[in-house]
Amino acid sequence: MKKSTDQVVFLAISYIVTSLIAIFTLFPFVVLIVNSFASEHSIIFYGYSLFPKEFSVDAYDLIFRSPDTILRSYGVTMLITTLGTATSLFFSSMAAYVMYRKDLKYRNGLAFFIYFTTLFNGGLASYYITLSSTYHLKNTLWVLLFVPMFSAMNILILRNFIRGSIPDSLCESAKIDGAGDFSIFIRIIIPLSKPALASIGLFTALGYWNDWWTPMMFVERQRLFPLQYVLYTIISSVNVSSSVVQNASSVTMPQESLKLAMTVVSTGPILLAYPFVQKYFVKGITLGSVKG
């Protein structure tokens, strides 16, 4: 099919703008990878450079000094990320579906019930004491699963997605056909909301993957440390050993390149998973395909 002028113009603009933004976002990451392999001396003396002046793997050496710990923490992270995301997505979309149903009298009340929690909170002290002393969640896998599990924003966004992409008539006709509330959710809502579920699922997974706050507050047993927190402790112990240690160490700890290497180590795996999510963002879902 031959493209019309307006299409050509639009595509040209799109390619140019998208490329520019992509370069703008990629460039720092390239610099980051390059300099994670730079020596401490070259970073402090010359700053970041586009080509490494003095090549060094000190930072990675330090991170993988105890490979067991790192591998184990990858395991913990993957476990809570997959388990947490699946659970969260299922219950979130279910709640979103409930609030989407127009025949539900209190649907706005429910939305407010969820939303209100983003406005007010009891502060850190209360949260900490409740979780650790009342629920005894400290030093458990549960705490890593539960704390980042639901986000009011995500649930409300899901509700709006369902609202925007699934006409009420579809639900009504299904009801007339004798489908129950739950089977409508499973058979119609879920298949039709795949793009929304993919994006919210992605956000949830990233939330789990990057969560270092929960383990910092609630986990003190090393075998339960997720990846981000292990990296975080490596950084902080390097900072400490450089400032309080009486021991005369004759090499400098690679503090500056460590920051960068940490990002590389923690970003790598989840980046590889991204293309699997992307296939859901392809334009072209038609309601007809489900109706039939």
């Binding site: 998208t18 992509a22 976002t25 990629l26 990002t263 992307q278």
Partner: peptide
């Protein structure tokens, strides 16, 4: 390009 735009999120 979409993947690239996501990179800064991790930094």
């Amino acid at each position: 390009s979409q993947s690239f735009m996501f990179l800064p999120y991790f930094i």
